Amino acid sequence: MTSVALRSAEVNGLSVSYRKTGQGAELVLLHGFLCDSRCWMPQLSGMSDSFTVVAWDAPGAGASSDPPDTFTTSDYARCLAGFLDTIGIDRAHVVGLSWGGILAQEFYRLYPERLRCLVLADTYAGWKGSLPEPVWKERLAACLAGAAGPPDALVAKVMPSMFSDRAPEDLRAALSSIISEFHPAGFRLMASSSAEMDTRDVLPRIEVPTLLLWGEEDPRSPIHVAEQLHAAIPGAELAIIPSAGHVSNMERPEAFNLHVRRFCTEHDAA
């Protein structure tokens, strides 16, 4: 994969790192927790022929600074709006994966006029909105414990749920390396954000074209969660990527990019 250099922007007192490349309609990529913009390299390199592709390191991830420990999902959404203002983007196609998809839903709630279309990939209506209470509470407790421990232990704990069993070792090694550099403060905030959010009230009000894009073998956010969102969002399209797990954009980048390109291009033309 071709590397795209990091840039930096100052947003409301935070240093936000990001990668930007290409030309055309703006495509903004929001990563999941324990990830950063490096997880979007297959999209930065694979879609820059038709889109201006932007992937940030959310505050508390990658090369960005840590936000205050009171930061909420709404604060992240406001920070995203400020970031887009700073780099000169008014409206964009927004793609959010996992925690990034929860953030994208909150961003839509606060700033619906800023989205051209919405792609929600392997995500949730918040853990509270999509998972049984014992499951999300246990998951949150495990994340908070993992944030306080050594990186190697966290990598070993979470990696089995990130890809399908077919994922090659070099891909596993690449994501393991990214996860091992996690920010404890950022991980705690994003895990708590994932757990405490319930966006089920937002879903029926989404009026922009929406694509739900799911790895067929995602164990963290199973297909029934995709079906829940599909039933709740008016006119949403659901596309399943075979032989892909939770981080489907890395495991099956060609299929992921094909769906995103088609969907965003169709709605640009419309």
Rank of each mutant, 00 (worst) to 15 (best):
D122C: 14
C117M: 11
A141Y: 04
Q43C: 02
D49F: 09
S98H: 01
L97I: 09
L97N: 13
R38Y: 14
T52W: 02
H93Y: 13
R109D: 15
L115C: 11
V94N: 06
A125D: 13
E138T: 15
E106F: 05
R114H: 12
P59W: 03
T123N: 07
W56Q: 05
T72V: 02
Y108W: 14
S74Q: 12
L80H: 06
A125F: 07
Y76Q: 13
A63T: 07
A104F: 01
V54G: 03
F51A: 05
V53L: 08
L120Y: 07
M47F: 00
C79F: 04
V135L: 11
A92W: 03
S98W: 00
S64I: 11
L80F: 08
G100D: 04
G129H: 04
P112Y: 12
A61W: 04
R139W: 08
V54M: 01
T72F: 01
R139V: 10
R139Y: 03
I89R: 02
G46R: 01
C117L: 05
D57Y: 12
S74C: 03
V119Y: 11
Y111T: 03
G82M: 04
F51H: 11
S74I: 09
I102G: 12
D75I: 00
S64E: 01
D57W: 13
G126M: 07
S65I: 02
S48W: 01
A55H: 02
V54L: 14
L115T: 06
D75W: 00
A81P: 04
R109F: 12
D122H: 08
A55T: 04
L110C: 06
I89W: 01
Y111M: 03
V94P: 02
D66M: 05
F107G: 14
A81K: 07
G46Y: 02
I89H: 03
G96L: 05
A63N: 10
A125G: 10
D85P: 09
L110N: 10
R114F: 14
W136F: 15
A58I: 08
D57G: 08
G60T: 05
A92L: 07
C79P: 00
Q105N: 02
T72S: 15
E138L: 11
I87A: 07
A142W: 09
T70M: 11
L97Q: 05
P67Y: 12
S45Y: 03
G96F: 06
T86P: 05
I89Q: 01
S45I: 00
